[in-house]
């Protein structure tokens, strides 16, 4: 399958180094302490932050830091294809987002408290993980939680010897089918996250 046409355009008409249109909105969940909606092209996610609040499960309470929890879910209607291994993927992405945000939040300022981050994918078109990280960052900033930095994320991949920025679903899945580049894709994502953070900080 041809992912980049001879004219240098991708399937959805972008150049290889072009991102999809992004749109963000804060304050979408009225009762939450902070919330945000983030769109990258057709990918649309919503994030809500509750906290810092009293730890629900006393045995998990940390005496020097805040406990950060994250729950990532995909709405049933977010994608047409039924994904059979969704559950494992959800837990994995929850973990990735939690670790990223935990690093970023100054948890030592809020000892013995808990911060809950909920992210849900409303529409999936590739790059849900990046969109979720971006939405979670915005929601945390909206909630007034002290952070080291704003983490931003964007996926990138290497297909048919062309590097592509911000993969959509078709490019993403084909990438996964080519066993070799699957790994590459993920590493780039994580590295990219750090890189952006680094650049922003200095």
């Amino acid at each position: 399958m041809e992912f980049v046409s001879p004219e240098g355009l991708r399937l959805d008409g972008r150049r290889p180094m072009e991102m999809r249109q992004i749109r963000a909105e804060i304050g979408v969940v009225a009762k939450a302490d902070g919330s945000a909606m983030f769109e990258m092209g057709n990918t649309k996610v919503i994030a809500a932050v509750y906290g810092p609040k009293e730890v629900q499960n006393r045995s998990q309470q940390l005496n020097a830091n805040a406990l950060v929890r994250c729950e990532y879910t995909m709405a049933n209607f977010s994608t047409r294809r039924s994904d059979e291994k969704t559950k494992g993927r959800s837990t994995e992405i929850s973990l990735v987002i939690r670790q990223t945000m935990e690093e970023c939040i100054l948890t030592n300022l809020m000892p013995r408290s808990q911060i809950d981050i909920f992210v849900q994918v409303l529409q999936a078109d590739g790059g849900t993980r990046s969109a979720c990280i971006n939405a979670a960052t915005l929601a945390l900033a909206d909630a007034g939680i002290p952070m080291r930095d704003l983490v931003t994320s964007c996926s990138a991949g290497y297909l048919n010897s062309t590097p592509l920025l911000d993969l959509n679903y078709i490019e993403d899945t084909c990438n996964r089918r080519l066993q070799g580049s699957c790994r590459l894709h993920r590493e780039i994502l994580l590295e990219n996250t750090k890189q952006l953070e680094y650049r922003r900080g200095t």
Binding site: A141, P146, M147, G201
Partner: peptide, 9 residues
Amino acid sequence: NGEVVATVC
């Protein structure tokens, strides 16, 4: 890095 940086908006 020797600079004062904001942690909240």
